[in-house]
């Protein structure tokens, strides 16, 4: 998928440039792109580094774990098929908390472990179970309170208030998550038959 998109972007871009006699722009873009990437990386790196240092403390001090436990009553409602106190529930909770704190890379290992734990409960091993899909939808709806990368990118371009978007992000992401869970419920019922 990514292969195709990448090729289309490059090929179409270059050909259009040639057709419209814009070869110089094309050449400059190719040469500049690595410099722009490096600039971008240097600018977002400090914010990510700082935030990852802090969340490491939150993790070690048990703060993340404590928050995960608070989530479990909600999770038993969202995942009715999972037996109470099953290990997958706490893995899901850890994944969600890590995502909420904007720790994508810390969330993924929890997410993968949660998936393989859900697979143990799954009866048809090649087919996604209902709990798996619910978990995925929550995951992909982008639940977060600190969009670290975006804030750092905004700082880089001299935004006067880089964090201005945080509240709007939280509200929109809540809608996305709730909408996702609702459609998941509706589709789960339809696909049963």
């Amino acid at each position: 998928m990514v292969n195709i998109i990448w090729m289309i972007l490059i090929v179409v871009g270059v050909f259009y440039g040639i057709l419209t006699n814009n070869l110089e722009t094309i050449n400059n873009t190719i040469v500049d792109s690595t410099k722009i990437s490096l600039d971008m990386l240097f600018k977002i790196f400090p914010v990510i580094a700082l935030w990852m240092g802090l969340t490491k403390i939150a993790e070690k001090s048990g703060l993340l774990e404590k928050l995960s436990i608070k989530l479990s009553p909600l999770l038993t409602k969202l995942f009715p098929e999972i037996p109470k106190n099953h290990e997958s529930l706490s893995l899901i909770a850890s994944n969600m908390i890590a995502n909420i704190f904007g720790l994508g890379s810390a969330a993924t290992p929890f997410g993968l472990k949660a998936m393989s734990s859900l697979q143990k409960l799954n009866k048809k091993k090649d087919t996604a179970s209902r709990s798996m899909i619910t978990f995925l939808v929550i995951n992909t709806s982008g639940l977060t309170i600190i969009p670290t990368t975006i804030i750092s990118l905004r700082m880089m371009y001299g935004s006067l208030e880089p964090t201005k978007i945080v509240l709007a992000c939280i509200i929109s992401t809540l809608f996305a998550t709730i909408g996702g869970i609702l459609i998941d419920r509706i589709l789960a019922r339809r696909y049963k038959n």
Partner: peptide, 15 residues
């Protein structure tokens, strides 16, 4: 980043 900025910028800057 390098891969995507190259492709996306080509697509945008070419018009």
């Amino acid at each position: 980043f390098i891969a995507m900025i190259l492709a996306v910028n080509l697509f945008i800057n070419s018009g």
